[in-house]
Design a protein around this nucleic acid. Sequence first.
DNA 1: AAGCGTATGTAACCTGGGTCACACACCCAC
DNA 2: GTGGGTGTGTGACCCAGGTTACATACGCTT
Lengths: 222, 222
Amino acid sequence: MELTPAGLLALYPSLAALPADQLAALCRPEALLRLPAGTQLFAERQPCQGFPLLLEGSIKVVKTAASGREMLLYRVEPGESCIITSSCLLGHAPYTARGEAETPITLLILPSPVFDRLVAEQARFRDFVFHLFSERLAELMQLVEEVAFHRLDQRLAKLLLAKNGDTLHATHQQLAEELGSVREIVSRLLKGFAAQGLVALGREQIGILDRNGLKSLAEAAR
Amino acid sequence: MELTPAGLLALYPSLAALPADQLAALCRPEALLRLPAGTQLFAERQPCQGFPLLLEGSIKVVKTAASGREMLLYRVEPGESCIITSSCLLGHAPYTARGEAETPITLLILPSPVFDRLVAEQARFRDFVFHLFSERLAELMQLVEEVAFHRLDQRLAKLLLAKNGDTLHATHQQLAEELGSVREIVSRLLKGFAAQGLVALGREQIGILDRNGLKSLAEAAR
DNA sequence: AAGCGTATGTAACCTGGGTCACACACCCAC
DNA sequence: GTGGGTGTGTGACCCAGGTTACATACGCTT
């Protein structure tokens, strides 16, 4: 991808206040960081030297249990920032989660001084950063509720609905890892869904047959 | 409580950069908000008109399930801010959790303009705010892990250990609500702890007999 | 002391979901 | 073809924890 100032602003309108020359400087190809899928982003807690903006691809943030089971905390998509990475910069908190590139990704690292100046001078950029934080907080609070109070079939149904498109490509193992469960259970539940005509199962793919059915299952009282 | 500038700074050193007169203005008794225990802070999502600093008391932030079961997400203590409240200000995110004064509390609301100016001009205050956010994020991520992967006895043991002091005053119901469980289970587990000589049970109180024992239980592989 | 409200004990039972141990089934490379 | 890797189906079993339904027990008021 060629990154143009206009393209950058389209993803990050809150950068609008940067002078044109600095914007151009950020867009130089050397400023971009391209990493292959599977890269571990902050497992090794290397000190991050800036505020990362995700331009392309997707990052998943994951907790790993002692047993080896995994669970997705959230994803970072283009237009967002991997605030968790920046948090070690901003908040000096040690994080225990793992960040991993789900796809090949392109990052733009806002150097610390640039970030500091933007936050200090640009109310709009500040709002953007605060917004990122509070979105994540809200998401995590929601996740706690779901894990603590909702049954797995409901969470699975919700997960299926969240993927847009009629058919979705994922292994049962991958779904289990998003939910913090194990493959067998996901298979069992999916079989149940299929028996109710909610989905059609195939190797590495799941066809959504009845969105409304799934939705009502996901929202059922208990 | 009489609030003096020195007292305020002791709790919130990051306010050090405020000019003396403004600091004094914040400390006027009229600026303080005193609320009785049990006050609902942002259930009704009244728009918050500033950034709240907690001076005295403690606030609990709680999720309530459809079934009526509750679960503590985190507490806000003096020296912190109820960022979640401020988040609706900063991030415009709708929150679904409930905030409640656990004890009588004293709040100081930083008016929006003062907050904005501090964040814009004072790197130290900015750091403080970012730090609050990232602490909460880390805590919530930890909580997700515990709820998803740890058994209740381990979480209960950890909870008991977290309270300092040898004996702790709480009903089983209250402990259950912190954990997102129910009274009977907490009673059952506590009975087990007592049988192992880890705790001594009494009406509305629990004596910690063997901290190390509890600790090793809390950290056991599974 | 009678009576009520609140905290606790506790047993029987149920169920969701995790574990184990397989059997297949598909796909691709050789 | 054939054989191995990767995904899936499935049944038997187990266990943590939630539900229901009580029985006490303690402490307070009247």
